[in-house]
């Protein structure tokens, strides 16, 4: 119970910081809109299969950029102060949940602008929504853990990309397969295997973060 209370206040703190600074959120939103616009003026007309791939690539890079700052945006002294107040598990849980909400908002915004400018060839909306939701959650969980690891090294930004891309590929392959099927007539029931695997990976990542983060935060 104590853990949940701590997590709750930490998430509130994250939102408060975001609301006060705002430049991080706005920066990412502008990044997404600018990328979508680049896609629009360079492709003009996009085939459905390419549309699908480009969407995931935009979302992937937006996620890396949005989450890379998770552990470096506040200075070391303030992080130390949090560790005296809350359990490390509460800290990683709060970061993960906050990033999850951030990614879901980001994905929705991205999809909105992307479909306005480039088009929206999706046939099975439920399946596509499922893929986007699972993808946003998976990206945010994985990248939060990787950001925690990369923040311990000095060359954070480069390391973030090197460490996260190989790790995310299995998830990305399954997501692209699901969302590709949603461009045609298809049934959600045909993709229970992929969905179950993705959910299982996400549960494993939360569990691992819960177990491993206490070793990570101490310097």
């Amino acid at each position: 119970m104590d853990l949940l209370r701590q997590t709750g206040s930490l998430i509130r703190k994250e939102f408060l910081i975001e609301w006060r600074q705002r430049y991080a959120l706005n920066g990412i939103l502008i990044y997404v809109v600018a990328t979508v616009f680049v896609v629009y003026i360079s492709f003009l007309k996009v085939e459905p299969a390419t549309w699908n791939l480009l969407f995931w690539i935009i979302l992937l890079f937006a996620a890396v950029n949005a989450i890379a700052k998770s552990f470096v945006q506040e200075n070391a002294g303030r992080m130390l102060y949090y560790y005296t107040l809350a359990a490390p598990q509460a800290i990683i849980l709060a970061k993960m949940l906050y990033n999850m909400i951030l990614m879901l908002v980001l994905a929705a915004t991205c999809l909105l602008f992307y479909s306005l400018l480039v088009g929206y060839p999706v046939v099975n909306h439920g399946l596509f929504g499922l893929a986007v939701a699972l993808g946003s959650i998976g990206f945010s969980l994985t990248f939060t853990m990787i950001a925690a690891i990369a923040s311990k090294a000095n060359s954070n930004a480069t390391l973030m990309a090197i460490l996260s891309f190989p790790v995310i590929i299995p998830m990305l392959l399954m997501l692209i397969r699901i969302s590709k099927a949603s461009l045609q007539e298809s049934a959600v029931a045909d993709f229970m295997d992929e969905t179950a695997t993705l959910v299982a990976i996400e549960v494993i990542i939360i569990t691992l973060a819960f177990l491993l983060f206490p070793y990570l935060w101490r310097d």
Binding site: M145, I146, V167, I204, Y215
Partner: peptide, 9 residues
């Protein structure tokens, strides 16, 4: 930590 995390993925 990365080794354990990477193996799980």
């Amino acid at each position: 930590v990365y080794n354990i995390f990477a193996f799980a993925t």
